[in-house]
């Protein structure tokens, strides 16, 4: 029982970060109808910037701000400078360009910083708070949860209560009509990518201290798990991303703890199949059109 409680809290901690990353993927899907395979590599680039600055200046907060700004710039740059020009005759072209971008960014980071693991130190105490002898969450885990919750709330407010958010939703849902109504669809697309990149950058900065360290391939596995989480929750639903992240985090923790670390990919596949067989669009997918 004690182990179960421990594993549950461990899973929730990991799940928070997968939730944040899945949120970034959902944002881009809703804005541009494309799965951003380069999300992990972009998060690595901003994470390097953040930690380099943070180490040089000695303040975690400054690094965090650098991550935010860097994410905005990188997302806008990728959309304006690259994704805009990719032909949409074939939806796979975006994927291939994203994969090429991953190779390019990873290699450039490797050239500049080298392939060594660098320490990514946490700003808060990582010792778990024990309740009744069972280690639960640490202060750093609480910080992660707080940040992810803040992001979700801010995004919800942005999309539902602000004019910009309304324009972004219109541009994603019906681009032609929005253009006729005066919405600058291109700029909304850029903004969507920039926001998603910011969320991804924050997720990257949050998770790196709990991983092996900062190195060019640090986010590869996180991307795969977060993609699964976004699928489980439904690509169209931000709430789904968070729920999916929690589910994936819990499953990974339980399987690691009871069945062995090697079997976690099988568990992820099982969860995906179980959810998608019942609801092919993910848990929070909307009502589908009637089919014949």
């Amino acid at each position: 029982m004690e182990r179960f409680v421990f594993l549950t809290f461990d899973g929730l901690s990991r799940g928070a970060v997968y939730a944040a990353f899945a949120l970034a993927l959902v944002l881009i899907w809703r804005a541009a109808r494309v799965v951003n395979f380069a999300q992990g590599a972009m998060a690595v680039v901003t994470a390097y910037a953040a930690y380099m600055v943070s180490d040089a200046v000695g303040s975690y907060l400054v690094g965090f701000v650098v991550a935010l700004v860097g994410g905005l710039l990188l997302g806008a740059l990728v959309e304006r400078g690259l994704m805009r020009f990719v032909g949409h005759a074939n939806p796979l072209n975006d994927v291939i360009v994203a994969l090429g971008l991953v190779l390019l960014l990873t290699a450039v980071v490797g050239i500049i910083f080298g392939g060594e693991f660098r320490a990514a130190n946490q700003p808060f105490d990582t010792r778990a708070i024990e309740v009744g002898g069972v280690p639960l969450m640490s202060r750093y885990d609480l910080f992660i949860w707080g940040t992810v919750a803040t992001i979700v709330v801010l995004l919800a407010l942005l999309f539902t209560r602000t004019a910009v958010g309304l324009r972004m939703r219109a541009a994603a849902f019906a681009p032609e009509v929005s253009r006729l109504l005066g919405v600058n669809v291109g700029r909304m697309l850029t903004l969507g990518w920039a926001l998603a990149a910011v969320v991804g950058a924050v997720a990257g900065v949050l998770i790196l201290p709990t991983e092996l360290g900062l190195h060019p391939h640090a986010m590869d596995i996180v991307f795969a798990s977060s993609f699964a989480a976004a699928i489980v929750g439904g690509l169209d639903s931000p709430v789904g991303a968070v729920v999916g992240g929690i589910i994936v985090g819990l499953i990974l923790s339980y399987v690691s703890g009871y069945l062995g670390a090697a079997l976690t990919p099988v568990a992820v596949l099982a969860v995906l199949l179980a959810v998608l067989l019942l609801r092919p669009g993910g848990i929070f997918s909307g009502v589908r059109a009637r089919t014949v």
Partner: peptide, 11 residues
């Protein structure tokens, strides 16, 4: 491929 070794250390 699995960087969460907290279950093992807790064991």
């Amino acid at each position: 491929s699995n960087t969460n070794i907290t279950p093992q250390i807790q064991a």
